[in-house]
Amino acid sequence: MTTASNGTPAIEFKDVVKRFGDNVVLDKLNFSVAQGDRVTLIGPSGSGKTTILRLLMTLEEANGGLILIDGDPYTHEYKGDRWVEIPEKRRRLVRKRVGMVFQQFNLFPNMTVLENITEAPIHVLGKSKKDAVERAEQLLEQVGMSEKRDFKTNQLSGGQQQRVAIARALAMDPEILLLDEVTSALDPEIVADVLGVLREIANTTDITMLLVTHEMQFAREVSNRVLMFDHGKIVEEADPETMFTNPTHERTQEFLKAVLGR
């Protein structure tokens, strides 16, 4: 698998197991993402893509295996041969490097647009209010939402909310950005706007990105690796060009045929 020049992958899954009841979603999954990689996860729903992102955000607990961020154990580690949970305090240090944008935006309705963006930088990163506001304004400019600065979040359309959510995640200066079907809840004519914002971020930063999306054209443009999942396993891995024009695995061919409607 690909590793970055400095050797340590940004994300590494080692034998990760995740079950929901009897349903095994991830079965001893192994993969890694190099620093600065843009990796797209594709596959039918229920194949475990979103679970991977949620594990990386500690929204789900793994049932086995290790997740490493920059080589640091994140939610669990081995003490001797005992697999133990890492306490919240230490998790927070690692989680600081990870940001996430959700399908349903999940902005805080009790805060204004600006407050949504400055809340965590002030209270988690300990930035001064002035710095946080300055940075937030710069990000709002970047996502084209400057004039909505003081609006309440539910005065915004879905596309606008998602752009704010992207700014909110970026305000934490994450090394890794998780994008979970960020355009699935949007009206078709708005999707291009949001993708435009993301494309610009991809082009102007070196943030490691892990995205789950059904926008194959977008995945092709921004990512440098595509992983095809089925039943909690990686069935095929390739660069986007190969994956979308000349997939080798039968499952991938079927899936792409269904999604692209050709």
């Binding site: 959700f102 809340e119 965590a120 209270h123 988690v124 995640a169």
Partner: peptide, 16 residues
Amino acid sequence: TAQWEAATALNLGWFH
């Protein structure tokens, strides 16, 4: 739950 999750994603502590 999504609100709790969004707050976790921003690394806020429980009390916060």
